[in-house]
Design a protein around this nucleic acid. Sequence first.
DNA 1: CTTTTCTCGCAACTGAGTTGCAAAGTTTAA
DNA 2: TTAAACTTTGCAACTCAGTTGCGAGAAAAG
Lengths: 138, 138
Amino acid sequence: MSDEETLANAGIRITAVRTMIWKQVRHQTKGVFSLSDLEEALPTVDRSTLFRTLTLFSEAHLLHNVDDGSGSQKYCVCHHDDTRQCTGHVHLTCTRCHNTFCLTNVSIPPVPLPDGFIPEETEYVVKGICLHCAKNYK
Amino acid sequence: MSDEETLANAGIRITAVRTMIWKQVRHQTKGVFSLSDLEEALPTVDRSTLFRTLTLFSEAHLLHNVDDGSGSQKYCVCHHDDTRQCTGHVHLTCTRCHNTFCLTNVSIPPVPLPDGFIPEETEYVVKGICLHCAKNYK
DNA sequence: CTTTTCTCGCAACTGAGTTGCAAAGTTTAA
DNA sequence: TTAAACTTTGCAACTCAGTTGCGAGAAAAG
Protein backbone atom coordinates (compact mmCIF):
# COMPACT_ATOMS: atom_id res chain seq x y z
CA MET A 1 0.00 0.00 0.00
CA SER A 2 1.45 3.36 -1.02
CA ASP A 3 1.75 6.21 1.42
CA GLU A 4 -1.01 8.09 -0.39
CA GLU A 5 -3.29 5.07 -0.24
CA THR A 6 -2.69 4.70 3.47
CA LEU A 7 -3.77 8.28 4.05
CA ALA A 8 -6.75 8.03 1.76
CA ASN A 9 -7.89 4.80 3.43
CA ALA A 10 -7.81 6.55 6.77
CA GLY A 11 -10.13 9.20 5.41
CA ILE A 12 -7.47 11.88 5.18
CA ARG A 13 -7.37 14.29 2.30
CA ILE A 14 -4.02 14.11 0.52
CA THR A 15 -1.77 17.12 0.25
CA ALA A 16 1.91 17.47 -0.51
CA VAL A 17 2.68 18.46 3.08
CA ARG A 18 0.73 15.59 4.61
CA THR A 19 2.38 13.05 2.35
CA MET A 20 5.79 14.44 3.25
CA ILE A 21 5.01 14.24 6.97
CA TRP A 22 3.65 10.72 6.68
CA LYS A 23 6.75 9.53 4.79
CA GLN A 24 9.00 11.05 7.42
CA VAL A 25 7.00 9.53 10.25
CA ARG A 26 7.09 6.07 8.68
CA HIS A 27 10.70 6.02 7.67
CA GLN A 28 12.33 7.49 10.71
CA THR A 29 14.49 5.33 12.91
CA LYS A 30 13.03 6.18 16.29
CA GLY A 31 10.00 4.13 17.14
CA VAL A 32 8.58 6.83 19.36
CA PHE A 33 9.05 10.46 18.44
CA SER A 34 8.04 13.91 19.59
CA LEU A 35 6.82 17.00 17.81
CA SER A 36 10.31 18.47 18.20
CA ASP A 37 11.91 15.44 16.55
CA LEU A 38 9.66 15.98 13.56
CA GLU A 39 10.32 19.70 13.53
CA GLU A 40 14.01 18.98 13.27
CA ALA A 41 13.54 16.49 10.46
CA LEU A 42 11.22 18.74 8.48
CA PRO A 43 12.38 22.31 9.04
CA THR A 44 10.40 23.67 6.09
CA VAL A 45 7.07 22.75 7.65
CA ASP A 46 5.61 24.97 10.34
CA ARG A 47 5.29 23.71 13.91
CA SER A 48 1.56 24.34 13.99
CA THR A 49 1.05 22.38 10.79
CA LEU A 50 3.06 19.47 12.18
CA PHE A 51 1.03 19.59 15.36
CA ARG A 52 -2.29 19.69 13.52
CA THR A 53 -1.22 16.93 11.17
CA LEU A 54 -0.07 14.68 14.00
CA THR A 55 -3.38 15.26 15.74
CA LEU A 56 -5.18 14.41 12.51
CA PHE A 57 -3.16 11.21 12.01
CA SER A 58 -3.73 10.28 15.60
CA GLU A 59 -7.49 10.73 15.31
CA ALA A 60 -7.41 8.64 12.14
CA HIS A 61 -5.58 5.90 14.08
CA LEU A 62 -2.49 6.04 11.91
CA LEU A 63 -0.50 7.04 14.99
CA HIS A 64 -1.05 6.62 18.66
CA ASN A 65 -0.07 8.88 21.50
CA VAL A 66 2.42 7.78 24.11
CA ASP A 67 2.85 9.36 27.52
CA ASP A 68 6.35 8.47 28.56
CA GLY A 69 6.44 10.75 31.56
CA SER A 70 8.96 13.07 29.94
CA GLY A 71 6.43 15.86 30.00
CA SER A 72 6.19 16.04 26.23
CA GLN A 73 3.75 14.18 24.07
CA LYS A 74 5.17 11.37 21.98
CA TYR A 75 3.77 9.57 18.96
CA CYS A 76 4.22 6.12 17.51
CA VAL A 77 3.15 4.63 14.19
CA CYS A 78 0.36 2.08 14.51
CA HIS A 79 1.43 -1.18 12.91
CA HIS A 80 -1.80 -3.01 13.54
CA ASP A 81 -5.10 -2.80 11.76
CA ASP A 82 -6.78 -2.82 15.13
CA THR A 83 -5.91 0.33 17.04
CA ARG A 84 -6.47 -1.40 20.35
CA GLN A 85 -3.43 -3.55 19.74
CA CYS A 86 -1.30 -0.45 19.45
CA THR A 87 -1.76 0.62 23.01
CA GLY A 88 -1.54 -1.70 25.97
CA HIS A 89 2.13 -2.54 25.67
CA VAL A 90 5.08 -1.56 27.81
CA HIS A 91 7.38 1.36 26.96
CA LEU A 92 10.99 1.90 27.92
CA THR A 93 12.41 5.39 28.35
CA CYS A 94 16.13 5.96 28.50
CA THR A 95 17.06 8.57 31.08
CA ARG A 96 20.30 9.32 29.24
CA CYS A 97 19.43 9.62 25.54
CA HIS A 98 15.74 10.37 26.23
CA ASN A 99 14.54 7.97 23.59
CA THR A 100 11.46 5.88 24.17
CA PHE A 101 11.06 2.36 22.85
CA CYS A 102 7.99 0.17 22.43
CA LEU A 103 8.02 -3.36 23.76
CA THR A 104 5.23 -4.29 21.39
CA ASN A 105 5.36 -7.91 22.44
CA VAL A 106 5.11 -7.22 26.18
CA SER A 107 1.56 -6.45 27.23
CA ILE A 108 0.72 -4.68 30.45
CA PRO A 109 -0.14 -7.04 33.31
CA PRO A 110 -3.48 -6.11 34.88
CA VAL A 111 -3.88 -4.96 38.48
CA PRO A 112 -6.93 -4.95 40.76
CA LEU A 113 -8.71 -1.60 40.61
CA PRO A 114 -11.02 -0.08 43.20
CA ASP A 115 -14.74 -0.68 42.68
CA GLY A 116 -16.41 2.02 40.66
CA PHE A 117 -13.31 3.22 38.82
CA ILE A 118 -13.84 2.98 35.06
CA PRO A 119 -10.50 2.36 33.34
CA GLU A 120 -9.92 3.80 29.87
CA GLU A 121 -6.22 3.47 29.17
CA THR A 122 -3.09 2.28 30.93
CA GLU A 123 0.51 3.43 30.67
CA TYR A 124 3.38 1.24 31.82
CA VAL A 125 6.71 3.00 31.43
CA VAL A 126 10.05 1.72 32.66
CA LYS A 127 12.70 4.40 33.00
CA GLY A 128 16.29 3.36 32.94
CA ILE A 129 19.36 3.13 30.77
CA CYS A 130 19.06 1.60 27.33
CA LEU A 131 21.50 -0.95 25.98
CA HIS A 132 23.22 1.58 23.75
CA CYS A 133 23.76 4.17 26.50
CA ALA A 134 24.79 1.56 29.04
CA LYS A 135 27.60 0.51 26.68
CA ASN A 136 28.80 3.96 25.71
CA TYR A 137 28.73 5.84 28.98
CA LYS A 138 29.55 3.12 31.43
CA MET B 1 6.44 14.48 65.42
CA SER B 2 5.85 18.17 64.78
CA ASP B 3 6.10 19.65 61.32
CA GLU B 4 9.30 21.44 62.29
CA GLU B 5 10.82 18.22 63.61
CA THR B 6 9.96 16.43 60.41
CA LEU B 7 11.79 19.03 58.38
CA ALA B 8 14.77 19.12 60.73
CA ASN B 9 15.02 15.32 60.68
CA ALA B 10 15.18 15.41 56.94
CA GLY B 11 18.12 17.79 57.16
CA ILE B 12 16.17 20.83 56.02
CA ARG B 13 16.79 24.23 57.55
CA ILE B 14 13.59 25.59 59.01
CA THR B 15 12.10 28.85 57.81
CA ALA B 16 8.63 30.33 58.13
CA VAL B 17 7.94 29.80 54.44
CA ARG B 18 9.09 26.18 54.45
CA THR B 19 7.01 25.35 57.48
CA MET B 20 3.99 26.94 55.85
CA ILE B 21 4.51 24.98 52.65
CA TRP B 22 5.02 21.72 54.53
CA LYS B 23 1.83 22.22 56.56
CA GLN B 24 -0.14 22.91 53.40
CA VAL B 25 1.32 19.91 51.65
CA ARG B 26 0.51 17.59 54.55
CA HIS B 27 -2.97 18.82 55.27
CA GLN B 28 -4.36 19.12 51.80
CA THR B 29 -7.07 16.77 50.65
CA LYS B 30 -5.59 15.68 47.33
CA GLY B 31 -3.15 12.85 47.64
CA VAL B 32 -1.25 13.90 44.56
CA PHE B 33 -0.85 17.58 43.76
CA SER B 34 0.87 19.85 41.27
CA LEU B 35 2.84 23.04 41.60
CA SER B 36 -0.24 24.93 40.40
CA ASP B 37 -2.40 23.39 43.12
CA LEU B 38 0.05 24.65 45.68
CA GLU B 39 0.27 28.06 44.05
CA GLU B 40 -3.47 28.38 44.38
CA ALA B 41 -3.44 27.33 48.03
CA LEU B 42 -0.56 29.65 48.99
CA PRO B 43 -0.91 32.77 46.85
CA THR B 44 1.49 34.78 49.03
CA VAL B 45 4.43 32.54 48.21
CA ASP B 46 6.20 32.94 44.90
CA ARG B 47 6.06 30.22 42.28
CA SER B 48 9.82 29.91 42.15
CA THR B 49 10.03 29.48 45.90
CA LEU B 50 7.34 26.81 45.82
CA PHE B 51 9.19 25.06 43.03
CA ARG B 52 12.53 25.19 44.82
CA THR B 53 10.98 24.06 48.07
CA LEU B 54 9.20 21.11 46.45
CA THR B 55 12.46 20.11 44.82
CA LEU B 56 14.17 20.38 48.20
CA PHE B 57 11.51 18.27 49.92
CA SER B 58 11.67 15.76 47.14
CA GLU B 59 15.45 15.44 47.43
CA ALA B 60 15.06 15.01 51.18
CA HIS B 61 12.55 12.20 50.53
CA LEU B 62 9.67 13.96 52.22
CA LEU B 63 7.82 13.94 48.91
CA HIS B 64 8.09 11.85 45.83
CA ASN B 65 7.52 12.80 42.23
CA VAL B 66 4.72 11.27 40.23
CA ASP B 67 4.50 11.25 36.44
CA ASP B 68 0.84 10.75 35.70
CA GLY B 69 1.12 11.46 32.02
CA SER B 70 -0.72 14.75 32.33
CA GLY B 71 2.36 16.58 31.20
CA SER B 72 2.80 18.36 34.49
CA GLN B 73 4.89 17.16 37.40
CA LYS B 74 2.95 15.93 40.41
CA TYR B 75 4.07 15.38 43.99
CA CYS B 76 2.92 13.11 46.77
CA VAL B 77 3.76 13.01 50.48
CA CYS B 78 5.89 10.03 51.46
CA HIS B 79 4.20 8.12 54.25
CA HIS B 80 6.90 5.54 54.69
CA ASP B 81 10.26 5.75 56.38
CA ASP B 82 11.73 3.88 53.47
CA THR B 83 11.53 5.98 50.33
CA ARG B 84 11.53 2.93 48.14
CA GLN B 85 8.13 1.98 49.42
CA CYS B 86 6.79 5.30 48.22
CA THR B 87 7.33 4.60 44.58
CA GLY B 88 6.50 1.35 42.89
CA HIS B 89 2.77 1.51 43.34
CA VAL B 90 -0.02 2.06 40.86
CA HIS B 91 -1.59 5.48 40.22
CA LEU B 92 -5.06 6.30 38.94
CA THR B 93 -5.72 9.47 36.97
CA CYS B 94 -9.24 10.69 36.40
CA THR B 95 -9.71 12.04 32.89
CA ARG B 96 -12.64 14.18 34.05
CA CYS B 97 -11.51 15.87 37.27
CA HIS B 98 -7.80 15.46 36.51
CA ASN B 99 -7.01 14.27 40.00
CA THR B 100 -4.48 11.53 40.53
CA PHE B 101 -4.76 8.95 43.29
CA CYS B 102 -2.21 6.56 44.78
CA LEU B 103 -3.07 2.90 45.14
CA THR B 104 -0.42 2.52 47.80
CA ASN B 105 -1.36 -1.09 48.44
CA VAL B 106 -1.17 -2.16 44.81
CA SER B 107 2.39 -2.71 43.69
CA ILE B 108 3.44 -2.75 40.06
CA PRO B 109 3.66 -6.25 38.58
CA PRO B 110 7.03 -6.82 36.92
CA VAL B 111 7.48 -7.49 33.21
CA PRO B 112 10.34 -9.11 31.31
CA LEU B 113 12.82 -6.49 30.09
CA PRO B 114 15.28 -6.79 27.21
CA ASP B 115 18.79 -7.89 28.13
CA GLY B 116 21.09 -4.99 28.87
CA PHE B 117 18.41 -2.49 29.81
CA ILE B 118 19.05 -1.16 33.31
CA PRO B 119 15.74 -0.25 34.96
CA GLU B 120 15.65 2.66 37.40
CA GLU B 121 12.02 3.48 37.98
CA THR B 122 8.63 2.33 36.77
CA GLU B 123 5.36 4.20 36.32
CA TYR B 124 2.04 2.39 36.11
CA VAL B 125 -0.83 4.81 35.53
CA VAL B 126 -4.41 3.87 34.83
CA LYS B 127 -6.44 6.63 33.21
CA GLY B 128 -10.16 6.51 33.55
CA ILE B 129 -13.10 7.92 35.44
CA CYS B 130 -12.96 8.02 39.21
CA LEU B 131 -15.80 6.91 41.45
CA HIS B 132 -16.83 10.45 42.24
CA CYS B 133 -16.94 11.62 38.62
CA ALA B 134 -18.64 8.43 37.44
CA LYS B 135 -21.47 9.15 39.89
CA ASN B 136 -21.86 12.84 39.16
CA TYR B 137 -21.53 13.04 35.41
CA LYS B 138 -23.08 9.74 34.35
C1' DC C 1 -14.53 29.45 -14.22
C1' DT C 2 -16.31 30.93 -10.00
C1' DT C 3 -17.62 30.02 -5.43
C1' DT C 4 -16.93 27.54 -1.36
C1' DT C 5 -14.25 24.94 1.63
C1' DC C 6 -9.89 23.32 3.37
C1' DT C 7 -4.98 23.73 4.46
C1' DC C 8 -0.96 26.03 5.71
C1' DG C 9 2.26 29.41 7.69
C1' DC C 10 2.77 33.30 10.52
C1' DA C 11 2.37 35.48 14.73
C1' DA C 12 0.97 35.47 19.06
C1' DC C 13 -0.34 33.47 23.27
C1' DT C 14 -0.71 30.01 27.35
C1' DG C 15 1.12 27.34 31.07
C1' DA C 16 4.67 24.79 33.38
C1' DG C 17 9.07 24.86 34.58
C1' DT C 18 13.36 27.20 35.42
C1' DT C 19 17.18 30.70 36.26
C1' DG C 20 19.86 35.14 37.57
C1' DC C 21 19.97 38.48 40.61
C1' DA C 22 19.43 41.52 44.41
C1' DA C 23 17.07 42.23 48.80
C1' DA C 24 15.88 40.26 53.10
C1' DG C 25 16.75 36.98 56.52
C1' DT C 26 19.68 33.76 59.20
C1' DT C 27 23.92 31.92 61.01
C1' DT C 28 28.63 32.22 62.45
C1' DA C 29 32.36 33.93 64.61
C1' DA C 30 34.97 37.75 66.34
C1' DT D 1 26.31 42.14 69.93
C1' DT D 2 27.67 43.16 65.87
C1' DA D 3 29.90 42.58 61.45
C1' DA D 4 30.80 39.30 57.89
C1' DA D 5 29.38 35.22 55.44
C1' DC D 6 26.00 32.54 53.82
C1' DT D 7 21.12 31.16 52.72
C1' DT D 8 16.50 31.97 51.33
C1' DT D 9 13.11 34.50 49.04
C1' DG D 10 10.60 37.26 45.49
C1' DC D 11 10.80 39.43 41.22
C1' DA D 12 11.50 39.47 36.50
C1' DA D 13 12.65 37.26 32.71
C1' DC D 14 13.26 33.43 29.91
C1' DT D 15 12.70 28.53 27.72
C1' DC D 16 10.09 25.06 25.72
C1' DA D 17 5.98 22.54 24.30
C1' DG D 18 1.66 23.03 23.00
C1' DT D 19 -2.07 25.65 21.04
C1' DT D 20 -5.08 29.19 18.57
C1' DG D 21 -6.76 33.07 15.33
C1' DC D 22 -6.37 34.63 11.09
C1' DG D 23 -5.44 35.61 6.36
C1' DA D 24 -3.43 33.90 1.98
C1' DG D 25 -3.20 30.37 -1.00
C1' DA D 26 -4.66 25.63 -2.64
C1' DA D 27 -8.12 22.26 -3.62
C1' DA D 28 -12.80 20.72 -4.41
C1' DA D 29 -17.54 21.51 -5.76
C1' DG D 30 -20.81 23.35 -8.61
